[in-house]
Design a protein around this nucleic acid. Structure first.
Length: 240
DNA sequence: TGCCAGGCCCTCTTTAGGGCCTT
């Protein structure tokens, strides 16, 4: 994937994007090759106190804007306001999150919104990418936002790299047999820069994996947008 | 009584079951 993530879309519809609902965004972005509409691709990862989106909380989050440049990464511990019992998994302890300056989620959400906005191109959309995003990272994020009655911005789309990895696994000449983040790192010869199961090292690995997957599957940004989903997609699926 | 996570995908399937994947 190129460093600059720009995709062609219909400029004439730009003025109407404020009224768009989640479900309308994808076709609008990928509609036409004649017009240019920017998409910012940001990978992200969370560490949590467990697997339950209802009972567990996020203890660390990291983002990386694939466009690069100054301030392209963002990482912070989060005070989950509950006892951490799985420190052996990620190494994040109760003492660490109790330290002065570690924000609670309600304090952090405006900062996350500001970070993403700072990376967003004027009039553009954001594609937030995570591994197992559909089942894990995004539902957790939605729960945290809804806990404080804050809406996910309508110009945010989400992409799950597990979907791309499954697609790669189906290719006849693919030698990949597992699609975990660890397995994909091993497959692509990516060395984890730092502790695995910490948000920033995992997000840096994910950025490299995303670039390799898009290359192997011959995808451009509009292809990624086509495979993206919105919070509304998850809510509607749950209702079915 | 029912909850204790949940969606995707494959197969020994489709009126289902179980492994994978995330912390």
């Amino acid at each position: 994937m190129s460093a600059s993530c720009t995709v062609n879309v219909n400029k004439s519809e730009k003025s109407g994007t404020q009224k768009l609902q989640y479900c309308d965004i994808q076709p609008t972005i990928i509609k036409s090759k004649e017009f240019i509409h920017p998409v910012t691709v940001i990978t992200f990862d969370i560490e949590t106190t467990g697997f339950s989106r209802n009972l567990d909380r996020i203890v660390e989050i990291a983002f990386q804007d694939l466009s690069g440049g100054e301030n392209s990464t963002f990482q912070t511990l989060i005070d989950p306001q509950c006892y951490i019992t799985n420190s052996s998994i990620h190494g994040i302890t109760n003492n660490m999150v109790a330290s002065c300056g570690v924000p609670r989620m309600q304090e952090l959400i405006p900062i996350i919104l500001q970070f993403v906005k700072s990376r967003q191109k004027p009039g553009g959309y954001v594609l937030l990418v995570a591994h197992n995003a559909r089942t894990f990272d995004v539902p957790f994020l939605l729960h945290e936002f809804s806990r404080y009655s804050i809406d996910i911005p309508q110009d945010w789309l989400f992409l799950d790299t597990m979907t791309l990895a499954r697609q790669l696994m189906k290719l006849s000449d693919s030698k990949i047999t597992k699609i975990s983040l660890e397995a994909l790192c091993e497959y692509y010869g990516i060395e984890v820069d730092g502790e695995a199961h910490r948000a920033l090292p995992d997000v840096i690995s994910l950025s490299l994996i995303l670039q390799r997957l898009t290359f192997d599957l011959k995808l451009d940004v509009s292809d990624l947008v086509e495979r993206a989903f919105t919070p509304l997609d998850l809510i509607n699926k749950k209702k079915k």
